[in-house]
Nucleic acid binder design. Structure first.
Ligand SMILES: Nc1ccn([C@H]2C[C@H](O)[C@@H](COP(=O)(O)OP(=O)(O)OP(=O)(O)O)O2)c(=O)n1
Ligand SMILES: [Mg+2]
Length: 599
DNA sequence: ACGGTTTAAACC
DNA sequence: TGGTTTAAA
């Protein structure tokens, strides 16, 4: 890497992964009869065959679409198989799909430095360091390139795409031999992504598609271009041309009212057209002339040039948990008792999912929110009448009970609801009910938490003190020897890369001024690492007298393997990164961490 | 009466 | 802040 430009050195490899017809795949795994035949997942099949929320590619080819009624799908595709979403507490229950998604992203997280789940079936990965590392060893790169089946500098894996995509996304854009190009990073990334996809298929049975580029926006833009079960790379050299003919609505964030307004008020057709507006103009449009939301002119200004600086975070667990149900027409709820009946049901589901969040992610909710729609017609205030026909939505929140079981949640919710609901609800009826838990905080919990699980670790390091005296915080050594397997995963290549490092205070202030809200301010929530949790607890009993010395440093042999294996991969990484001195021995943990290679 | 259930974030 | 709206899967 001696002739590289600054831009090339800084380039990231960011991946967007998206499961193919996801709910359908989940159902097919449970019932292989459904493989290779047109099928769809519906919820509530009582009315017109239910509403389709996911469909197989066979069904899509026959003209079936999402949001169609099951009965309508049968008109265009008489042999379609319809599977109904499970029901619990008199509502659709998506648990099986959530869990299936989690299993996939657990695998992704194990195989990438950063994995940020953004929906039930999508995530971003940052594999910059892994790609750099692979690129630093050409023999290794070539070997894995062959195994992965990724084609470089040809169009053969674009058999299904049209001319436009061929030209834009591939052609001769990847030339790994030329190190002074961002394309080589993407070439290496493509190999790694192929390996990750193979690992996901191997461990879960699911196929996914992926987009590989230098930022979130671009990888997301192309992840679906060759679905299903294909990955697509977008070279920086193709971005300008691509955006110049990309319909504005097709870019993430412009698919709604914002896009519509830009299109008909500013006669903008393509993303690239936005470039003709100065940042100042965009700001004025955003604020002054009714172009609502996304105040961030900066964001638009950068997006239309293919720039997106938002980093990939490390998070698989959801930040909030909610559930709800709609009650149409005659079924709308018309009494407090009727509302309570369903709040009770929703509370059962919410309580279960909160329990799960606590066990799996150490998350505890601080806030409960209840919201509802009402068909209220007359709202008069100061002589003005508002909203004659439309549904009004309201929401109220309250503190989450310390023991968030179904009974307590329901109690808390009804308490805030009773205050205001009754007159309105009887008059017009409640057409939707939702409850949710948010402000999920990470906590340590004796009964279910990590402390108990890591018992062996605690006892082992409590027993030692003298024998561990050689353990200090150290800068990771520049590896003189070649690292393999798990070691390689944690090796930091030469060019520093810390995308989520938070700037110090003064720098932060400066950034805020110039940044203008376009990219996300992450107030990192002082996330307690396993390391911190453990040693914070220790330091209360054992007063530390040295600030640089790490007491009771973990070593691999002190970690209970059976416990470790059950930890979410995020936590596995925390444990691993707190282990400096001793790396695991060959056989066992190699299995969990190594690059998945086709057998 | 008929696209429902969910998550995340910006906005005020 | 809490409450509302937008955008997305
Ligand atoms: N309006 C929507 C969109 C999606 N989903 C659910 C069902 C999908 O299976 C899953 C993932 O959404 P995608 O948009 O990724 O669609 P699919 O995964 O089904 O198909 P694709 O192969 O296009 O990704 O989320 C939903 O319930 N309601
Ligand atoms: Mg999908």
């Amino acid at each position: 890497m001696s002739h590289t430009s600054k831009a090339t050195e800084r380039a990231r490899c960011v991946v967007h992964v998206d499961l193919d017809c996801f709910y359908v795949q989940v159902e097919r795994k449970m019932n292989p009869e459904l493989l290779k035949v047109p099928c769809a997942v519906v919820q509530y099949n009582k009315f017109q065959g239910g509403g389709i929320i996911a469909l197989s590619y066979e069904a899509k080819a026959r003209g079936v679409r999402r949001s169609m009624r099951g009965n309508d799908a049968r008109v265009v595709c008489p042999d379609i198989r319809l599977v109904t979403v499970p029901t619990a507490n008199e509502k659709a229950d998506l648990t099986r799909y959530r869990n299936a998604g989690s299993s996939v992203f657990e695998v992704c997280a194990r195989h990438s430095d950063l994995c940020e789940r953004t929906s039930i079936d999508e995530a971003y990965l940052d594999i910059t360091l892994q790609a750099r590392t692979l690129l630093s060893n050409m023999d290794e790169f070539k070997r894995r390139l062959r195994l992965s089946g990724v084609m470089i500098g040809t169009e053969s894996n674009l058999a299904d795409s049209d001319e436009f995509e061929k030209e834009i996304f591939w052609k001769d854009s990847l030339q790994p031999e030329n190190n002074d190009t961002q394309d080589s990073l993407l070439a290496a990334g493509s190999v790694i992504v192929a390996e990750i996809r193979a690992a996901v298929k191997d461990k879960t049975g699911y196929t996914l598609s992926a987009g590989i580029s230098h930022n979130k926006m671009l990888s997301k833009l192309v992840s679906g271009k060759n679905k299903p079960n294909k990955q697509t790379v977008l070279s920086s050299t193709k971005v300008e041309k691509l955006l110049s003919r990309l319909p504005l609505r097709d870019l993430n964030g412009f698919g709604g009212k914002l896009g519509d307004k830009l299109i008909d008020k500013c006669s903008i057709k393509y993303v690239g057209d936005l470039k003709k507006y100065s940042l100042m103009k965009l700001a004025k449009m955003a604020i002054g002339s009714e172009i609502v939301r996304i105040n961030s002119a900066t964001w638009m200004s950068q997006a239309c040039r293919g720039i997106c600086t938002e980093t990939v975070k490390s998070r698989i667990a959801a930040k909030s948990i909610s559930c709800g149900k709609t009650f149409r027409g005659p079924t709308r709820l018309r009494s407090i008792d009727n509302v309570k009946e369903y709040i009770d049901k929703l509370s059962i589901e919410l309580a279960e999912r909160l329990q799960n969040a606590k066990q799996k992610h150490r998350q505890v909710a601080k806030l409960i929110t209840v919201s509802y729609h009402t068909g209220s017609k007359t709202v008069k205030r100061k002589g003005q009448e508002i909203n004659l026909t439309g549904n009004i939505s309201k929401s109220r929140s309250c503190r989450c009970p310390a023991t968030p079981n179904a009974v307590n949640i329901s109690k808390a919710v009804m308490q805030v609801l009773e205050k205001e609901l009754d007159s309105e609800c009887i008059r017009a009826g409640v057409t939707c009910l939702y409850i949710g838990a948010s402000k999920l905080e990470n906590v340590r919990d004796e009964a279910t938490g990590i402390d108990t699980l890591l018992k062996k670790v605690v006892s082992a390091s409590t027993a030692t003190s003298e024998s561990d005296s050689h353990l200090y915080i150290q800068k990771p050594k520049q590896a003189a020897k070649r690292r393999t397997g798990i070691e390689q995963m944690f090796t930091r290549p030469l060019t520093p890369y810390e995308p989520n490092k938070k700037p110090n205070r003064s720098l932060q202030a400066a950034t805020r001024v110039s940044n203008d809200g376009g990219d996300i301010q992450q107030k990192e929530e002082t996330k307690p690492t396993i390391h911190n949790l453990f040693f914070r607890a220790k330091s209360k009993s054992t007063k530390s007298n040295s600030s640089i010395r790490i007491q009771n440093q973990l070593t691999w042999n002190q970690v209970d393997q059976t416990v470790f294996r059950e930890l979410p991969s995020e936590l596995q990484k925390e444990v691993m990164s707190s282990i400096r001195s001793e790396m695991p021995q060959q056989a066992t943990r190699r299995k969990r961490f190594k690059w998945s290679q086709k057998p």
